[in-house]
Computed example of a mutant assay.
Amino acid sequence: MADQQNVARIVTAVSSVVVAVCAVVVTVKVAGADLDPADPPRVLDQTALEQQVANRLQGVREEPVGRVTCPGSVQVIVGNQFDCETWDYLKSAKVRVAIISDQGEIEVTRS
């Protein structure tokens, strides 16, 4: 009977230590976790982008640039490239736009 009580005490002591260690591990993990929500991706304003492309093309060509259409929700990632479509009277043309800085600066080249 005394042996059973000693075994029960040992099992209880070991169980208490295991629970305490688990509690410490969980506390350290939670304290070290980054609980801030992730920042949403930065995207270019579509209207401002289209105006900027038109302005860049206007400086290169003598005739006025018609309408410019660019994709929406373009993420600001350096090196990201996409096409915009320009309309001059009744014909359309594509231009290649590349993001060259993390501030959203672009470079426009004719396709």
Results as ranks from 00 to 15, higher is better:
Asp3Cys: 04
Gln5Ile: 15
Asn6Gly: 04
Val7Pro: 00
Val7Gly: 00
Val7Gln: 08
Val7Leu: 12
Ala8Met: 10
Ala8Pro: 05
Arg9Ser: 12
Arg9Gln: 14
Arg9Pro: 01
Ile10Tyr: 04
Ile10Asp: 06
Val11Cys: 05
Val11Asp: 12
Val11Lys: 09
Thr12Cys: 04
Thr12Asn: 13
Ala13Asn: 12
Ala13Pro: 03
Ala13Trp: 05
Ala13Phe: 11
Val14Glu: 08
Val14Leu: 14
Ser15Lys: 09
Ser15Ile: 08
Ser16Cys: 03
Ser16Val: 08
Val17Thr: 13
Val19Met: 10
Val19Gln: 09
Val19Arg: 04
Val19Ala: 12
Val21Gln: 04
Val21Thr: 13
Val21Cys: 10
Cys22Trp: 05
Cys22Met: 14
Cys22Leu: 15
Ala23Trp: 04
Ala23Asp: 08
Ala23His: 03
Ala23Asn: 11
Val24Gln: 04
Val26Ser: 09
Val26Asn: 04
Thr27Asp: 03
Thr27Asn: 09
Thr27Cys: 10
Val28Asp: 02
Lys29His: 02
Lys29Asp: 06
Val30Cys: 02
Ala31Ile: 14
Ala31Ser: 11
Ala31Phe: 11
Gly32Val: 05
Asp34Gly: 07
Asp34Ser: 12
Asp34Asn: 15
Asp34Leu: 05
Leu35Trp: 13
Leu35Cys: 01
Leu35Tyr: 05
Asp36Val: 07
Pro37Trp: 00
Ala38Lys: 14
Asp39Glu: 14
Asp39Tyr: 01
Asp39Phe: 01
Pro41Ser: 09
Pro41Arg: 08
Arg42Val: 13
Val43His: 06
Gln46Ala: 14
Gln46Asn: 11
Gln46Ile: 11
Thr47Met: 01
Thr47His: 01
Ala48Met: 06
Ala48Asn: 11
Leu49Met: 09
Gln52Cys: 01
Val53Ser: 02
Ala54His: 04
Ala54Glu: 10
Asn55Ile: 03
Asn55Lys: 08
Asn55Arg: 07
Asn55Met: 02
Asn55Glu: 11
Arg56His: 02
Arg56Gln: 10
Arg56Ala: 06
Leu57Thr: 07
Leu57Phe: 03
Leu57Arg: 02
Leu57Met: 12
Gly59Met: 02
Gly59Pro: 03
Val60Ile: 10
Arg61Cys: 00
Arg61Trp: 07
Arg61Val: 12
Glu62Trp: 02
Glu63Met: 14
Pro64His: 01
Pro64Gln: 11
Pro64Arg: 11
Pro64Trp: 00
Val65Trp: 01
Val65His: 02
Gly66Ala: 11
Gly66Ile: 13
Val68Pro: 12
Thr69Asp: 13
Thr69His: 05
Cys70Tyr: 07
Cys70Thr: 14
Cys70Glu: 10
Pro71Trp: 09
Gly72Leu: 11
Ser73Lys: 13
Ser73Gln: 15
Ser73Met: 07
Val74Asp: 04
Val74Ile: 15
Gln75Gly: 02
Gln75His: 07
Val76Gln: 07
Val76Phe: 03
Ile77Val: 15
Val78Gly: 02
Gly79Glu: 05
Asn80Val: 05
Gln81Ile: 10
Gln81Thr: 15
Gln81Trp: 00
Gln81Cys: 04
Phe82Tyr: 14
Phe82Gly: 10
Phe82Cys: 08
Cys84Lys: 04
Cys84Ser: 06
Cys84Gly: 07
Cys84Gln: 06
Cys84Pro: 09
Thr86Arg: 07
Trp87Val: 15
Trp87Arg: 15
Asp88Asn: 13
Asp88Ile: 13
Asp88Ala: 11
Tyr89Thr: 15
Tyr89Asn: 15
Leu90Pro: 03
